[in-house]
Computed example of a mutant assay.
Amino acid sequence: MTVESSGTEPMWLVAANVVRWRRYGDGGQELRPGTKSYRGGAKVYVVDSYPGMAHEQVTTIGRARTGRWITVDTGSRHLHTFRAKLAYAPAVRRRAEAIGVRPRSREEAEKLAGLLERLAAEYRETHHGAPHPTPCLCHACLVTPG
């Protein structure tokens, strides 16, 4: 069996996971699981970012809470563990190609993943500008002991 040239080859994309819990509401004193579109821990592929907004918003492709594939813009602060990953799922490749995602090399995907990881951590820390609730289950508090 041969691989056709109709987009059936895997694409290098940036993958990430949705935070299990996110801060919400006035001063970030409430916690909500995942995001409105994605369950906490869901794997998503980042297919676009908005340089004018300093990568604060990114376009993602992933399985929605309903189990269907969706393409949605989300705050990068709601994602973590950015990494370069080959996307094999035909649904991901079709959606990425439909919005004009150009193929990138592994090195380009790794570089973008590193940038997004740093920026997302910064956005999580500065977004609410208020102390965390006690106890706090947000991503920053879960991965930082103490």
Results as ranks from 00 to 15, higher is better:
Thr2Trp: 06
Thr2Val: 13
Val3Arg: 15
Val3Ile: 15
Val3Met: 15
Leu13Ala: 06
Leu13Arg: 01
Ala16Leu: 03
Ala16Phe: 03
Ala16Ser: 03
Val18Cys: 05
Arg20Asp: 11
Tyr24Arg: 10
Asp26Arg: 15
Asp26Ala: 14
Gly28Tyr: 04
Gly40Arg: 04
Gly41Asp: 10
Ala42Gly: 05
Asp48Gly: 12
Pro51Trp: 12
Gly52Cys: 08
Gly52Pro: 06
Met53Gln: 14
Ala54Ile: 11
Gln57Lys: 12
Thr59Trp: 08
Gly67His: 13
Gly67Pro: 09
Thr71Cys: 15
Val72Ala: 09
Arg77Glu: 01
His80Gln: 01
His80Ile: 03
Phe82Thr: 02
Phe82Tyr: 07
Ala84Asp: 03
Lys85Ile: 02
Val92Ser: 03
Val92Glu: 13
Arg95Thr: 11
Glu97Trp: 07
Arg102Thr: 11
Pro103Trp: 06
Pro103Arg: 09
Pro103Cys: 08
Pro103Asn: 14
Arg104Asn: 03
Ser105Cys: 05
Arg106Ser: 11
Ala113Lys: 07
Leu115Pro: 06
Glu117Ser: 14
Leu119Asp: 05
Ala121Gly: 02
Arg124Met: 00
Arg124Phe: 04
His127Asp: 06
His128Leu: 07
Gly129Trp: 05
Gly129Tyr: 08
Pro133Ser: 05
Ala140Asp: 07
Ala140Trp: 04
Val143Gly: 05
Pro145Ala: 05
